[in-house]
Write a protein that binds this DNA or RNA. Structure first.
Lengths: 171, 171
DNA sequence: AAAAATATGTTGCATTTACAACAATATTAT
DNA sequence: ATAATATTGTTGTAAATGCAACATATTTTT
């Protein structure tokens, strides 16, 4: 007899729960993105240390971007990397000091700017790192079929374009 | 006559390019995730400032997590938030100081731990923030159909589980 | 032509974050 | 039983990041 009351009680509780069901931020795609990205970054850092790669992930991303956009100036690079000019400059200092890039003064729209390019040494380093990490990076994503990743990536890219229009970057 | 040589030259160049085509890190899903997440975080911060919300995004995520996991201890919370114990403690200090959570000493596996719970004030603040930001957060994602987001989110969740097994968290 | 605004890069500072060391206590190993 | 190890939280410090201010030069406005 008593368990009937109990069952009813549970049912009422469930109804109330459903009625006041809140969408939690921590269940949102925004938070999921942040957490996944945070883990990915940690893994990358640990991998770079384990493989004794002499540059940071940020420097690696910068080097890769420079290899694609030869002759880019600092501010434009900062925009692509979504970093402020100060930090971008500092990253470039270390890349230059390590001999992976060269910087030279040039003009853009009649203004003096610091342009840059990847060096032969930097190019070799980039390929070296690519070869070293490829296997590890693939092992993380291999469980999900590549086509699925392509879809996810295209959704994220569209999402990113939307974001870029809304965020004030001030770079 | 000359343009034939030129065309041939271009073709050869193209073939070479394709042969040595490198998968750039900046084209990878890993980097796409990081950049999208970075932008999302910037947008969130700007939104919180614009709406004059008195806590940070991190504090908000912590408060939300505590509201779901009543009576959780600090270290377990840190594991969920993927933050180190030091930072988690500091976030909790400010949340407690603002009266949004209460902390109390209890035991877990015979060990003294600091457990916590959300206060009535904290609960109201959480709902208040949820109402305030919902519209803005939806406006960023509304162009992509909800079902697509669900798929993306489930892929990311599976990906995250994979990551969690590979990353040394040390929390 | 003078003043205001813009573009680019650097410097300094304040905030955030990560990491290591520590204190206190409990468990496990020798 | 004593020593070694593990758990939990805090404190201190070094590194990363972001932001504002500055210096320089150019364009636009008045």
């Amino acid at each position: 007899m008593q368990h009937i009351f109990f069952t009813t009680y549970i049912k009422i509780l469930t109804v109330i729960r459903m009625a006041e069901k809140i969408e939690h931020y921590t269940d949102s795609i925004h938070y999921e993105l942040e957490q996944t990205s945070r883990l990915m970054k940690m893994l990358g850092k640990q991998l770079f240390e384990k493989l004794e790669i002499g540059i940071t992930m940020d420097e690696y991303a910068a080097l890769d971007t420079i290899s694609i956009n030869a002759g880019i100036c600092q501010r434009d690079l900062a925009k692509i990397l979504i970093k402020d000019r100060a930090n971008t400059g500092r990253i470039l200092d270390t890349l230059e000091q390590k001999g992976f890039i060269t910087r030279f003064i040039d003009t853009k729209n009649n203004r003096l700017v610091k342009k840059m390019g990847i060096t032969e040494k930097g190019y070799k380093e980039l390929n070296f790192i690519n070869k070293k990490i490829r296997h590890y990076f693939e092992s993380v994503t291999h469980k999900v079929p590549e086509e699925t990743w392509n879809k996810v990536q295209s959704v994220l890219k569209a999402f990113r374009l939307e974001l870029e229009q809304m965020v004030e970057t001030n770079i």
